[in-house]
Design a protein around this nucleic acid. Structure first.
Length: 897
RNA sequence: GCCCGGGUGGCGAAAUCGGUAGACGCAGGGGAUUCAAAAUCCCCCGCUGAAAGGCGUGUCGGUUCGAGUCCGACCCCGGGCACCA
C-alpha cells in the first residue's frame, strides 16, 4: 500500500510539471529580448521544468569520472519544510552543483525519515491514520523541495515507512540476532499508569505524563538491544580516520563512548551465612584507602535483600524507582541515600564498610554499585556531609591543606600522592593504581578493567508507527525469528492510535500467526524498532533503491562512502554513531566494504526562533507560534511579557530554541518563496551566517538578498541590451580594466576556496557583492570594456550558479545563447590577471596603526623599513632611532619606538 | 550536573596561519532623480572628542613588538545527554 502510494504521487507530480513546460520554449522563440525586470517566478519555473524534462540530475554510475556523493540528512515528514531544511538542503545543493562544475559525477538523493512519534500524535489529535498523514506530508514537502530547485536525483527517493525499505531493517536485525549482536534483556521505560502506556522522554513533563498529568513510573520490561559496545574500541579508534569531520563532533563521540581504564574490585561480605562479593568499578583505585561507604542502585540485589525487613528502605527504593530515566535529571537531582544495615569488608584493610542505597547510582552502568570516597570525589563529599559519614583524606598535595569545611578543586586531582594509606604512602596516581590493583588481583578480589560509558542500543519501542520487529512468540518454541522468505512483516497502515498503548495489540489480523517452527498458532511481536534504525543505513540504500532482492548491491561499491554528509549539529552523537556502528555491522556481514560511511561531515548550526508556551490545566505544555502572540519588549528589544493574540491571556516566554514542529516555532519558507522566489530564499539562507553557526531567525534582511539579485539582473540587462560580445581573453587593457580583472580573477579563486575548502558561503557571496559594486562603478563602454564586462558577467553567473541556479541559468541563456550553464566547467583563473606591481602595507608604531605605504611587490626588507620610517605620519610617533622594526612580508611593518 | 559549541556596532556578520577590528548586507540619517510614489543612484553611519587623539571584540587577569584570534578564571546563550528526530 505504501509503495503504491509513493508511485502514484510521483506520477502525479510529473504530470503536473509537464503542464507548464511549453511556456518556457515558447518564450524563447517569440521573445528573444531579455526581460528588463527580474521576475523570479517565471525564471524559476522555466529552469525547473527544463531540468525535470531533461532529467539532468539523474546520477548514473560512471567510472570515467570521479564520483561525488553529496548527502543531506533526510527530513522527517512533519508537514512543511522549515528554515532548517532550507539551510541544510541549500548547503548540499551548493556543494553538489559546485562539484559538478569541477568535473565530478555527482549523486544527490532525497528521501523521508518517515516513521516516528509525531505521526502518532497527529493521529491522536486529528484521528487520521499515521500512514495517511505521513504520505500526505511527503507529497506536500516533495513539492516544496522541488520548488527550491535542488539538483536531486528523484528516481532514488525512498521512505523508511515503505515495506520495500524496512524489510531490510528486519532482515538485518535477524542477521544480528544470529551473530549475537542483537539480544534480549530488560529495559527501563517511562510508564504512564493512567494511559497504561510507555512514554517517550519528551512526553514526560516534570515527572508527569503529557496527556494524563499522572506521575510517571519507571518500569522494567523486556526489550531488544544491539551490541554497539562490541564495536566500542573500533568506533573510538576510527575517529582518527575521520580527518574531514569537525573536531568537535569527534570529541563529542569520543567522550560519549567514554573509554576509561580502571580497576574493578570486590568488597566481600557474608549475608545470612552466605558469602558474597559486592563488585564496583573505579578509575581512582589510588583512593581506595579512603573508602568510608559503598552505594548501590535501587535495583541492586543487596538493596532488594535489605528492603525485605525494612519498610522504610523499601519505601525509599520505591521512591527511587519513580521519576525520570533521563540522565540530565539523574545528574541534577538532589543526591539522596539510605543505609541498608548491610556491611561489607574493605578488600585491603578488612574494615567494615556500610552499604547505602543511592538514588544517583545507575544499575545500567558497571555493576550498579560504587565505592564512596568522600575525601576525593565531589559527589561523595556532598553525600557524606549530608549524612554525616566519615571523610578520610588519602591524597595530599604539597603546599595544600585539606579541610572538611568545603570541597576544593584539588581534592579530586590525580596530581597528588597517597597519604594515610599505609604502604602506598608517597606513591603518585599511576604507581598507586598499579600497586593497589596488583594487591587486589593477588587476593583474587580485583582486575584491571576497561570500562565504557557507551551502552548497548535498546531498539524496542512499544509504539505502532515503526518497523515491526520480526519475531514470533510461540507457547512451545519460545521466541522464533520470522523466516527470511516471510519478510517483510508488514505494518497495517489503517490503525489510528488513541494514546492508550500500542494499537497493534488490538489487531488480531496482525497478531495471529503460526509458529514457523512447529506450525501451531502463535503471536507476533508488537514492539517496533527505534527510528534511528531506519536512519542508520538509508545512505547506502540510495545506491540501490530499486533492488528487491538485496539490501545493497554492487552499485553501493561505486557510490559509497558518502563524500559529503550534511546535517544538523543535534545529530553529532546518536545518529552519526549508530550509522557508523551499523556500517561496521554490515561490513562484517560482507555486505559492504567500507569501514566508515561518511568521509566528510558538515554540521550545520540550528535555526533558532523564540518559543512561547503555556501550562495546560492537566500540567502539560501548550505551545504558541510566534505569530499567535504579541510581545512587549524593552528598549533593547528584550522580551518583557507576552500575551496570546487570540485570548489575550499571558503566555510564558521560553527563550530561544531550535525550530521544531513540537514547539511550534518553525518558519514556513513557503511565504518567502512565493514573495521573492527560491533563489532569494537560498541566497539569504547562505548569506545570513556561516553554515556551522546557529542562526537566529529574523526576516528583515531578506530584502537585501532580493535587491542583490535584481541588481545582477539589471547590470546584465544593461550589457546585453547593447549587444553581447565574445568575452575578453587577451590583449592590452587600461589600468582601470586591469584592476577590475584582477578583482574578478581573485574572486574566482576566493569563491572556489570558500565553496570547496572552507565551506563558508556567506563570505563567497559578500565577495561577489563587493565585485559587483566595483563592476557597477567601472566605465565599460569601450570595446575592451564590453569584452571585460562580458567576461565578468559570465563569471558572475557561473560562480553564483551553485547558490542561485535559476537566475544563473536565465542569465547564461542570454549571455551565451544556445548553451546550458549546467554543462559549463568552473571558470579558470587567468594567471596574467593576477600579476600586481605594487602592494600596500600597513605601518604600525608600537602595534597601533599609523599609516599606509605603497611599495614594489618584491621590495626588500630594507627598502620597506626605510619607506615606513620616512613616512610623515609615522615620524610623528617615533622619536629618535626605533628599538626594533618588524616587517611581515606582504602585510605590515611594526616599529617599536 | 556532565560533554560540545557560541558571545564582535542598533541588527546579521567579516577578519582563513597571532598582523589594518567591523569587509559584505540589514536597519537608520542626508541628498539626487520623479508631478508624486515605487524602484534606482550618491554620501554618512562603533563609542568619545572641536581636532589631534583616546577607547572598543561577554567579564577579569596573563603571554607577545602586536591578541577578536593563544593561556587561566568567571558570566551568559545554544546543542547533546541514550524513547523528539
Amino acid at each position: 500500500m505504501a509503495e503504491g502510494k509513493a508511485c502514484s504521487c510521483r506520477k502525479r507530480f510529473r504530470g503536473g510539471a509537464s503542464g507548464y513546460n511549453c511556456s518556457f520554449e515558447n518564450k524563447q522563440l517569440s521573445d528573444p529580448v531579455m526581460q528588463e525586470h527580474y521576475t523570479p517566478s517565471s525564471i524559476e519555473s522555466a529552469a525547473q521544468t527544463k531540468w525535470e524534462k531533461n532529467q539532468v540530475f539523474r546520477a548514473i554510475e560512471d567510472t570515467s569520472k570521479p564520483k561525488y556523493y553529496c548527502l543531506c540528512m533526510f527530513p522527517y515528514p512533519s508537514g512543511k519544510l522549515h528554515m532548517g531544511h532550507v539551510r541544510n538542503y541549500t548547503i548540499g545543493d551548493v556543494l553538489s552543483r559546485y562539484h559538478r562544475m569541477q568535473g565530478y559525477n555527482v549523486l544527490q538523493p532525497m528521501g523521508w525519515d518517515a516513521f516516528g512519534l509525531p505521526a502518532e500524535n497527529a493521529a491522536i489529535a486529528n484521528k487520521v491514520p499515521p500512514a495517511k498523514w505521513t504520505w500526505d506530508n511527503i507529497d506536500y514537502m516533495r513539492l516544496q523541495l522541488k520548488s527550491l530547485g535542488f539538483a536531486i536525483d528523484w528516481e532514488r527517493e525512498l521512505a523508511t515507512c515503505s515495506p520495500d525499505y524496512y524489510k531490510w531493517n528486519q532482515w538485518m536485525f535477524l542477521r544480528m540476532l544470529e551473530k549475537g549482536i542483537a539480544y534480549k534483556k530488560t529495559q527501563v521505560v517511562n510508564w504512564d499508569p493512567v494511559d497504561m502506556t510507555v512514554l517517550a522522554n519528551e512526553q514526560v513533563i516534570d515527572g508527569r505524563g503529557w496527556r494524563t498529568g499522572a506521575l510517571v513510573e519507571k518500569r522494567e520490561i523486556p526489550g531488544y538491544y544491539l551490541g554497539i559496545t562490541q564495536y566500542a574500541e573500533e568506533l573510538l579508534g576510527d575517529l582518527d580516520k575521520l580527518e574531514h569531520w569537525p573536531e568537535r563532533v569527534r570529541l563529542m563521540q569520543a567522550n560519549w563512548i567514554g573509554k576509561s581504564t580502571g580497576v574493578r574490585f570486590a568488597f566481600p561480605y557474608e549475608l545470612d551465612g552466605e558469602a558474597g562479593q559486592l563488585w564496583v568499578f573505579t578509575t581512582r583505585a589510588d583512593t581506595i584507602m579512603g573508602v568510608t561507604f559503598c552505594a548501590v542502585a535501587a535495583e541492586h540485589p543487596l538493596a532488594t535483600h535489605a528492603a525485605k525487613n525494612n519498610p522504610e528502605l523499601a519505601a525509599f527504593i520505591e521512591k527511587c524507582k519513580h521519576g525520570s530515566v533521563m540522565e540530565a535529571d539523574m545528574a541534577t537531582m538532589e543526591k539522596e541515600g539510605m543505609p541498608t544495615g548491610i556491611f561489607v569488608s574493605h578488600p585491603l584493610t578488612g574494615e567494615q564498610v556500610e552499604v547505602w542505597v543511592g538514588n544517583y547510582v545507575l544499575m545500567s552502568y558497571g555493576d550498579g554499585a560504587v565505592m564512596g570516597v568522600p575525601s576525593h570525589d565531589e559527589r561523595d563529599f556532598a553525600f557524606a556531609k549530608k549524612y554525616g559519614l566519615p571523610i578520610n583524606q588519602v591524597v595530599g598535595m604539597e603546599g595544600k591543606e585539606y579541610s572538611l569545611d568545603a570541597w576544593q578543586e584539588w581534592y579530586g586531582s590525580k596530581d597528588g600522592a597517597c597519604v594515610n594509606s599505609g604502604k602506598y604512602d608517597g606513591l603518585n596516581y599511576s604507581a598507586a593504581v598499579d600497586a593497589i590493583a596488583a594487591d587486589l588481583i593477588a587476593k583474587n578480589l580485583g582486575e584491571k578493567k576497561v570500562q565504557w560509558r557507551l551502552r548497548d542500543w535498546g531498539i524496542s519501542r512499544q509504539r505502532y508507527w515503526g518497523c515491526p520487529i520480526p519475531l514470533i512468540h510461540c507457547d512451545d518454541c519460545g521466541t522464533v525469528p520470522v523466516p527470511d522468505d516471510q519478510l517483510p512483516v508488514k505494518l497495517p497502515e489503517d490503525c489510528v492510535p488513541d494514546g492508550s498503548g500500542n494499537p497493534l495489540l488490538k489487531r488480531d489480523d496482525f497478531l495471529k500467526c503460526t509458529c514457523p517452527k512447529c506450525g501451531k498458532p502463535a503471536r507476533r511481536e508488537t514492539d517496533t524498532m527505534d527510528t534511528f534504525v531506519d536512519s542508520s543505513w538509508y545512505y547506502a540504500r540510495y545506491a540501490s533503491p530499486d533492488n528487491a532482492d538485496a539490501m545493497v548491491d554492487e552499485r553501493a561499491d561505486y557510490w559509497m562512502p558518502v563524500d559529503q554528509y550534511i546535517g544538523g549539529i543535534e545529530h553529532a552523537i546518536l545518529h552519526l554513531l549508530y550509522s557508523r556502528f551499523w556500517s561496521k555491522a554490515m561490513r562484517d556481514l560482507g555486505l559492504v566494504s567500507y569501514d566508515e560511511p561518511f568521509k566528510r561531515l558538515l554540521t550545520q548550526g540550528m535555526v533558532l526562533n523564540h518559543i512561547f508556551s503555556r501550562r495546560t490545566d492537566k500540567g502539560g505544555i501548550e505551545y504558541f507560534a510566534p505569530e499567535e502572540v504579541t510581545a512587549e519588549t524593552d528598549e533593547k528589544g528584550r522580551i518583557l511579557s507576552v500575551k496570546s493574540s487570540v485570548d489575550g491571556l499571558p503566555v510564558d516566554y521560553q527563550g530561544i530554541g531550535t525550530m521544531s514542529k513540537s514547539k511550534r516555532n518553525g518558519i514556513d519558507p513557503q511565504a518567502l518563496i512565493e514573495q521573492y522566489g527560491a533563489d532569494t530564499a537560498r541566497l539569504f539562507m547562505m548569506f545570513a551566517a556561516p553554515p556551522e553557526m546557529t542562526l537566529e531567525w529574523s526576516d528583515s534582511a531578506v530584502e537585501g538578498s532580493f535587491r542583490f539579485l535584481r541588481r545582477v539582473w539589471k547590470l546584465a540587462h544593461d550589457h546585453i541590451s547593447t549587444g553581447i560580445v565574445p568575452a575578453y581573453t587577451s590583449g592590452d587593457l587600461p589600468a582601470e580594466l586591469k584592476a577590475l580583472r584582477f578583482q574578478l580573477h581573485t574572486l574566482i579563486q576566493k569563491v572556489a576556496d570558500d565553496y570547496g575548502r572552507r565551506q563558508q558561503f556567506n563570505t563567497a557571496i559578500a565577495a561577489v557583492m563587493e565585485f559587483l559594486n566595483a563592476f557597477a562603478k567601472a566605465d565599460l563602454k569601450s570595446d575592451a570594456g564590453k569584452a571585460v564586462a562580458q567576461e565578468a558577467l559570465e563569471t558572475i553567473a557561473l560562480v553564483l550558479s551553485p547558490i542561485v541556479p535559476h537566475i544563473a541559468d536565465a542569465l547564461w541563456n542570454e549571455l551565451k545563447p544556445g548553451s546550458d550553464i549546467l554543462d559549463q566547467a568552473w571558470p579558470k583563473v587567468d594567471p596574467a590577471a593576477l600579476v600586481q606591481d605594487e602592494i600596500e602595507l600597513v605601518v604600525q608604531v608600537n602595534g597601533k596603526l599609523r599609516s599606509n605605504i605603497k611599495v614594489a611587490k618584491d621590495a626588500s626588507k630594507e627598502v620597506i623599513e626605510a619607506a615606513a620610517l620616512a613616512d610623515e605620519n609615522v615620524q610623528k610617533f617615533v622619536n629618535g632611532a626605533p628599538k626594533k622594526v618588524i616587517v611581515v612580508p606582504g602585510r605590515l611593518v611594526n616599529i617599536v619606538a
